[in-house]
Design a protein around this nucleic acid. Structure first.
Lengths: 235, 235
DNA sequence: GTCTATATGTTGATAGAC
DNA sequence: GTCTATCAACATATAGAC
């Protein structure tokens, strides 16, 4: 997995690639691969072919380096969302957009690997996702083990409830449902960092999530829409 | 935030609470609060009122301690799922369960704080969620900052597409959509640890996710179901 | 601006007495 | 089984030469 440490960057502020930008690129690369905690400043400076002190001169702390690196990449990501949104609005003319169109603009960049984004194998979405799921490899493995049996049990159950669906689709549905529930339950466990103003009805959180997931599963494979469409193909 | 270090444990293998179990309880508590990386063995042993060597004697490594602690808690979580499933099947009699019923059994424990589970303020779901979103506080803050503007923009857009919906509901919908997309995109970025057998059609991943989320949002607040129901109240 | 060298603290894990 | 004492490796951060 050897690769030339510096080739070219689409973020270069000046003509040539200075140390600061090399550090930002290296930070994006290694943060994306290993997450925040598991990444050491030494690894980043080594990747950028510079020294530990240079990094501290430019950024002060590891946290500030992450902040700037993330900002640089996320800007590309979010600009892309706005571009997609504008494109849809232009095509729609006077009509208002459907929620499908809005969500498509919002979610599509997660699934794209635009060549002008990818730098040393890393795309902006890769970093964002990595920071969301910032667990060491071992944790992911143990967690997966702990839920293998129960998930298999529930896939079997879903197969009974939805006879026409393939098991791998239902596996995926269960994974998506877990993702939804986790995000829905975050502030139930007071792990949210924003002021939970609690204007949302807490009591109906479970019911809403169940409805959300069940409707989503049916929409994906039980609806009129089977297989790939032409959505997003003109990107 | 002082609390008596040892009160009682529902996991006691023997009559009294030995060092090994105290370590497991302390591990669950601190792993749940801080995640894996940010938790030191010293913090766990201090909480358990024992020494670092005792932990290493019983578990060998920090990873093994996490594995065993997680297994112990997850068993309660998954047993609860099975109980709920059995209850629904019993009530259904001969009829097969709906997917709503299946997902309800699967997801409900995420939102429960059963008194017999909670030990020193930690429930099994709390640990599972923490391990999913195992980021340091700083990372969560920076990530949130980076997406504040764009999220506000898309909430505005959704308000236009769904005039009757409240903005806080749409904020929540966007968060859930992000959760879905992240989980759906994980193996797009080859961050999945299981052998991605790629029998799932990769090309339609985005379209399925968009449909999933859009249908989910409508089902939660556009469907016949508004506000709290009696689902799960008899738990 | 960038480097070498170092300060200071923490980590997970181990050795050996009891 | 549990402890004290210690290890080597790693972390972030800084001082000062150039």
């Amino acid at each position: 997995m050897t690769l030339s440490p510096v080739e070219e960057s689409e973020f270069g502020v000046s003509g040539c690639l200075d140390t600061k930008q090399r550090l930002l690129d290296a930070a994006v690369k290694i943060f994306s691969e290993k997450g925040f905690h598991a990444t050491s400043m030494r690894a980043i400076t080594q990747e950028a072919q510079t020294s530990l002190s240079a990094a501290n001169y430019h950024f002060g702390t590891k946290e500030e380096l992450l902040r700037l690196a993330l900002q640089q990449r996320v800007k590309l990501f979010n600009d892309r969302r706005l571009t997609l949104l504008q494109k849809s609005k232009k095509e729609a003319g006077e009509a208002t957009l459907s929620i499908e169109q809005v969500f498509e603009a919002y979610l599509q960049p997660f699934f794209e690997r635009r060549t002008e984004w990818v730098f040393q194998g890393v795309s902006p979405a890769g970093l964002a996702i990595r920071l969301y799921l910032d667990m060491p490899e071992f944790v992911a493995r143990v967690r997966k083990e702990a839920f293998t049996v129960i998930n298999h049990r529930f896939v079997t159950e879903l197969e009974e409830a939805l006879p026409g669906f393939s098991s791998c689709v239902l596996e995926e549905a269960l994974q998506l449902g877990t993702g939804v529930a986790i995000h829905a339950a975050i502030d139930v466990f007071e792990m949210n960092l924003n002021a939970s103003d609690e204007k949302k009805r807490a009591g109906s959180r479970l019911e809403n999530t169940v409805r959300f997931v069940a409707a989503g599963v049916c929409a994906v494979n039980g609806g009129p829409f089977i297989g790939p469409s032409d959505l997003g193909e003109n990107s």
